Computed example of a mutant assay.
Amino acid sequence: MKRIYHVGLMLLITICVITACRKMDSAYKNYVVPGGLTYAGKATKPKAYSGLNRVKVAWLRGADPSVVKAKVFWNSFADSISVDIPEIGDTISVMIDNLQEKSYTFIIRTYDAQGHSSIPVEVVGGSYGEKYQAQLLTRPVNSTVIKTNGAITINWGGADVSNGAFASEVEYTDVSGNVKHKLFPVESLTSEILDMKPNTNYKFRTLFRPDSLSVDNFYTGYTDGGLRSFDKKDWKIIDYSTQHSPGENAVINFIDGTDGTRWHTCAGCSNYPHFATIDMGVERTITQFGVWRTTYAMPDGDDRGPDKFEFLTSIDNITWINHGSFNFNRLINGEQRYLLPENAKARYFKFVGTQGPQSYMVMGEISTYGQ
């Protein structure tokens, strides 16, 4: 009797299970696509390239030859752009213009001719604009030196590499009258221009790329090349009043390129005026000159310089033009610069200390500037 009961119970359970399954199949029937869903091949290895109020979205062509179109969505699907897939080419790309300056998530869907869509693929990118541009700093020029042959050497300051500075652009007029542009990488501490037209200047700006995938470069405004000093490599001291001794006190130290050495006139055997005459090697147009006291053996500065001096120029070392008397502050370090409004043409110049606290004089350096 128990055996019959157990068999009946098992039959009843089996019937219930079969009935329940049939009801479930009926319930899910409306959600099943006969033959299964068809997906187009998705975008492969997408990248977003930043730009000036724009972004280029690109991806590799997939293996699915049926894909004929794609759509790129952004702003949570509120905006989109369609892309026709060409028959040839390995890369598909689209430029999205007129974007606000911010980061975006782009969603790419591809489609076949029947309208079947791929699964979505996301890529993040951003556009740059006025805010980024406003924080860019021009790489400074520390000095510009004109050589005897007319070539100029630009000594650069530090570049704003944290914001993407990668080059400096120099615009100048060459000896044939043509306007030229040259790019110099930020890794270069000095740059040389060999063919700049005499008596002209250059201007420069800094180029930026906000990231390695940027399709656009950004630029600072142009800055005038400014003051140019004359290279002292070929300068010679052709005459001088006295020097205390050769070596650390020699008059040649007055033109060696640093205020860390000194020209010390003869102590106990000389009196004002003290002078040095310099041959620059070629004729120049001097617009300014600068004078330093020395810091040799005295980091805080040596105050035994003159209170007054004169500056003279000559083309032939025979006829001299005196440009007047100038005050010198012997109590401060650094260059003290003086204008020559006459823009004196000269190959030779003469520095003459005329008044000071001692009978002798101690000086650091002298430089000339112009064209």
Rank of each mutant, 00 (worst) to 15 (best):
residue 4 I to L: 12
residue 11 L to I: 10
residue 15 I to G: 02
residue 22 R to N: 13
residue 43 A to H: 00
residue 43 A to W: 00
residue 47 K to N: 01
residue 49 Y to I: 02
residue 56 K to T: 09
residue 57 V to C: 00
residue 67 V to D: 01
residue 74 W to E: 04
residue 79 D to M: 13
residue 80 S to C: 10
residue 82 S to I: 12
residue 83 V to K: 07
residue 84 D to H: 05
residue 84 D to E: 13
residue 90 D to K: 15
residue 106 F to P: 03
residue 112 D to H: 05
residue 121 V to R: 11
residue 124 V to K: 10
residue 126 G to K: 06
residue 127 S to I: 08
residue 130 E to L: 12
residue 136 L to V: 04
residue 138 T to E: 11
residue 141 V to I: 15
residue 142 N to C: 11
residue 152 I to T: 10
residue 152 I to A: 01
residue 154 I to R: 05
residue 156 W to N: 01
residue 158 G to T: 15
residue 161 V to P: 08
residue 163 N to W: 05
residue 164 G to E: 08
residue 165 A to T: 10
residue 168 S to T: 14
residue 178 N to Y: 09
residue 179 V to P: 00
residue 179 V to Y: 01
residue 184 F to E: 04
residue 187 E to Q: 08
residue 187 E to C: 04
residue 195 D to C: 03
residue 195 D to R: 03
residue 196 M to F: 00
residue 200 T to K: 00
residue 218 F to T: 05
residue 222 Y to S: 00
residue 223 T to M: 08
residue 224 D to E: 13
residue 231 D to A: 13
residue 241 S to M: 11
residue 242 T to Q: 14
residue 245 S to P: 01
residue 254 F to I: 12
residue 256 D to H: 11
residue 256 D to R: 05
residue 257 G to A: 05
residue 264 H to A: 05
residue 269 C to H: 13
residue 273 P to D: 03
residue 287 T to A: 06
residue 290 G to W: 06
residue 294 T to F: 03
residue 295 T to D: 05
residue 296 Y to A: 09
residue 301 G to N: 08
residue 306 P to A: 06
residue 307 D to N: 14
residue 312 L to E: 08
residue 317 N to T: 01
residue 319 T to Q: 06
residue 319 T to I: 12
residue 327 N to A: 12
residue 330 R to L: 08
residue 341 P to C: 02
residue 353 G to V: 14
residue 354 T to F: 05
residue 355 Q to R: 09
residue 359 S to N: 15
